[in-house]
Amino acid sequence: MTPAVPAVLAEIAGLALRNAMPDVHPADRASSLGLSAALLGMAAEVWDGTAARLVEENRAVRALLARAGEVGLDFAELAVGDDADLRISSLQAANDALRAALIALQTAAEAKSPTLDADIWAELVASTERRKMAASPV
């Protein structure tokens, strides 16, 4: 999720301190606390699974990038990563690089390889299932 969870939690901590002051207007405090509660709930929901989700997704995208030769591209360097650093910020940085390359790969696959294009779509659908929140409206 972006903005990253730790930065948002730090901001909410500061907000909670400000809302503890007696001169905060009740309507402002209610609005702030309600939204903060919703964000805390979402942060709690993703806390345990984020690293596993990113590792799974990075593996799936690397497998697709390894096939870049089918459409005349070369993502060999990206395709051999191993997610040795399990900090979420590191996994997310790798995920960003991989998904940026995936966009280039799919753009080429649309013109040259319907099979690869279909496999990329399958991963994109799977990625939205991995990221789905309990209260998702869709």
Partner: peptide
């Protein structure tokens, strides 16, 4: 403001 975080967190995947 928290309202700026809610849309990307709640709606980007949706």
């Amino acid at each position: 403001e928290p309202i700026m975080v809610y849309p990307p967190w709640a709606l980007q995947n949706a």
